[in-house]
């Protein structure tokens, strides 16, 4: 009896997944119905090779509604977390993603290139680099290409990123170029300059602090101290500097640094924004109780 019940339940689940796949691939259903069916059972796509192939066909078919294709992509991504079951179809999945990487729909293109780059796909990397060198070939805006290239940085990308930092097409592109260069050991001087440049966008100065700490932690500690001693610098950059010292600095040296403690004391009062006053007080309670 128990065995019969178990078999019945298993069959019911199969039927449920089967029904979802049936609706998902039925072009006579509305896009809304098909999206709902796909999202209801994302693992259905790995229950058989046939289902996987059907979902890949939906994803790759430019005649299908874009909402259905995006849902198919999301279901395939969710199913890819079931590593063992997904493995047999992975080759076809990657082949479809590469095909869709040049799709007319920009949102789909962007998502697919992101998936490929997170798996360090050479095809996607070449396409993105080609687009940065020749905008006529670009599949995504330069700032997005730089962000995606940062998943697997190679020397070619560093060269392009340096050029963009010097002559950025827009603020976002410069920011993403800086983020990409944060893995380049030779870029520490660039970040030192950006961090100390009060005319630079403060978001870029914040990135420069993180990058400098990554590439040359000692140098960031030096610069952070200088910024905190400089009352004319911005509150937010001084707060970033304070956090860098408190989180990663030499506790003993910080406790003995009277000039720094005096400056932080000043930062903890006056016209400093309230949230940063609190950060300064926490620093003082740790190093100058």
């Amino acid at each position: 009896m128990a065995k019969k019940l178990k078999t019945a339940k298993r069959t019911a689940k199969k039927v449920s997944s089967r029904a979802a796949m049936s609706v998902a691939t039925n072009v006579d259903k509305t896009a809304k119905q098909r999206v709902a069916a796909i999202t209801s059972a994302p693992l259905a796509v790995v229950e058989s090779d046939k289902d996987m192939q059907a979902m890949l066909a939906v994803l790759g078919n430019t005649d299908e509604p874009i909402a259905v294709r995006l849902a198919a992509l999301q279901a395939l991504q969710a199913a890819s977390f079931s590593v063992v079951a997904f493995e047999s179809g992975r080759g076809d999945y990657v082949a479809t993603l590469r095909k869709v990487a040049t799709d007319p729909d920009p949102e789909l293109r962007q998502r697919v290139l992101g998936i490929l780059m997170r798996d360090k796909d050479g095809f996607a990397q070449k396409k993105l680099l080609d687009g940065l060198k020749d905008p006529a070939k670009a599949l995504v805006p330069p700032e997005k290409a730089l962000q995606l290239l940062s998943y697997d940085v190679h020397t070619d990308a560093y060269e392009v990123a340096r050029d963009i930092v010097k002559k950025p097409p827009n603020d976002d592109a410069k920011r993403e170029a800086l983020r990409l260069l944060a893995a380049d050991a030779k870029a520490a001087p660039i970040f030192e300059k950006v961090l100390r440049d009060k005319k630079e966008l403060r978001a870029n100065r914040q990135i420069a602090a993180a990058a400098l700490h990554s590439l040359d932690p000692g140098k960031l500690q030096q610069q952070a101290r200088k910024i905190l001693l400089d009352k004319s610098d911005y509150d937010d950059i001084r707060a970033t500097s304070l956090v860098a010292l408190q989180q990663f600095g030499d506790d003993e040296a910080l406790g003995k640094d009277k000039a720094l403690l005096k400056s932080v004391k000043g930062f903890s009062g006056g016209k400093t924004q309230a949230k940063y006053k609190q950060t300064a007080r926490q620093f003082l309670s740790k190093y100058s109780p």
């Binding site: 976002d172 920011r175 970033t240």
Partner: peptide, 30 residues
């Protein structure tokens, strides 16, 4: 932001988050 680049407050220590040699987090809510 629209690109999926995550920004942190200047007093949030996660602004120094680093993985795989790269600082920062990419996360684009759909």
């Amino acid at each position: 932001d629209n690109l999926g680049t995550v920004s942190f407050a200047n007093n949030n220590p996660l602004q120094f988050w680093k993985t795989d040699g790269q600082p920062g987090v990419n996360r684009r809510p759909l």
